[in-house]
Nucleic acid binder design. Structure first.
Lengths: 223, 223
DNA sequence: AGGTATGGCTAATACTCATTAGCCATACAG
DNA sequence: CTGTATGGCTAATGAGTATTAGCCATACCT
């Protein structure tokens, strides 16, 4: 039973300073919401996050979010799609630079690991919450992921056929590389002293060793 | 508004054949529930699993489960505790067999991977649903996990100090090994033609290579 | 035969949440 | 000034779901 009847209610519309905003793109508010959602999804999970919590981060109520977004699910779709798209983009850029098989594998591994450190929240959510996606988004993301993974497998295969890599199974080796990189998003601490680049280089070297394509530069001590 | 009023209601108590059961241990029914819950937690998640679904697997209704278990949370605690305990047990057994640093590392890696393939549901749930545990269970499990992980790190360190391993960071290398094994629980398919043992051996070899302790037996083709 | 424990069932309880409805103050355009 | 769009708010709504209450048939023990 409501106690107060229709008192002038709390904070109302107080638009931010820069009045005119380009009409097309996602507003500032949209981005703020996405950021808040990302951090919450990563730390307490999609199911564990409530709209009220997201609102809290911006100092507004849960229902007010719907003035800017369509649904909670939309937020997840944007996050996960953005993550997979960016990952594929970076991977393609890494491959486009050419080089021999070892170099290319070294590079896509480094890119993989660097992303999982740098954008650890996106990466973590992108892997963990795939099953929270409703169809057809889930299937779409899984397709992109398969494509991403297959690049690793193909490269391992190419290297093995050229006798550059020695590996018992292209598939297992590529999964191992992928999974060790994914793991980074679960433990990497950005306030530590180690940069995503350092970590990426070290992991890439580990990957090459795993594939029996050992080089010699992998012996610096931890920073 | 209920349509039927008090008709003799469906299936009632039909105890299974072997009447007398030892009074102490968890009943058959308890185990069946645990198994059903495990599969569901692994495939649709703890939050995504309803008591009604678990009941369905045994042909009974959701509320009837409470004649055998205390709560949904209890099921998760049993699963995750069992998983971590078993993992530690096997790790200790592997270490107890002694041998040089490479042998011991090879063995705890193989054990790690084999478990994650063999008991992939337990393993998957044990990692993914830790945050679904209520305190103090969550903290307890995290403590056990830290202990488990530290065994890897200590062994890597020992090997490095003996110049048996060459690695840029004990911590990163051990995380890489752990994470690639954990990943197995997400993709391993028990109906495929590859045994957990084969996979474990291959992965253990990958780990040794990563650590720069290459041996020579790692070159069999995929089965 | 009678009594009791067991393990089903349905219905109710008590929450938690995403989302919608409807209200209103402010800012800004004309 | 005045009108309108914006972006807050509170209060429903409605669905989902763990858990409890209370009922009852069966099986088994004496």
């Amino acid at each position: 039973m409501p106690v107060r009847d229709r008192l002038p209610a709390g904070r109302t519309h107080v638009p931010s300073a820069g009045g005119s905003r380009p009409p097309g793109g996602p507003s500032d508010r949209h981005h703020e919401i996405l950021d808040a959602a990302l951090e919450l999804f990563a730390t307490v999970g999609y199911g564990g996050t409530t709209m009220a919590q997201i609102g809290d981060r911006l100092g507004i109520r849960g229902p007010s979010l719907y003035k800017h977004i369509a649904s909670k699910q939309e937020l997840l779709v944007e996050i996960v799609t953005g993550m997979m798209t960016e990952l594929l983009r970076r991977q393609q850029a890494a491959l486009a630079r050419g080089g021999d098989v070892s170099e290319r594998l070294q590079r896509i591994t480094a890119v993989h690991v660097q992303y999982h450190a740098e954008q650890r929240y996106e990466a973590f959510v992108g892997h963990r919450e795939i099953d929270s996606l409703e169809e057809p988004h889930r299937t779409h993301i899984l397709d992109l992921r398969r494509e991403y993974e297959s690049r690793f497998r193909e490269l391992v295969q190419e290297g093995r056929e050229l006798d550059v890599f020695r590996t018992a199974s292209d598939r297992w080796s590529s999964y191992a590389i992928l999974d060790m990189g994914i793991g980074v998003s679960a433990w990497y601490n950005p306030s530590g002293s180690v940069s995503p680049e350092q970590l990426a280089d070290t992991y890439a070297e580990l990957a090459l060793r795993m594939l029996g394509a050992e080089r010699d530069s992998a012996n610096t001590r931890e920073g």
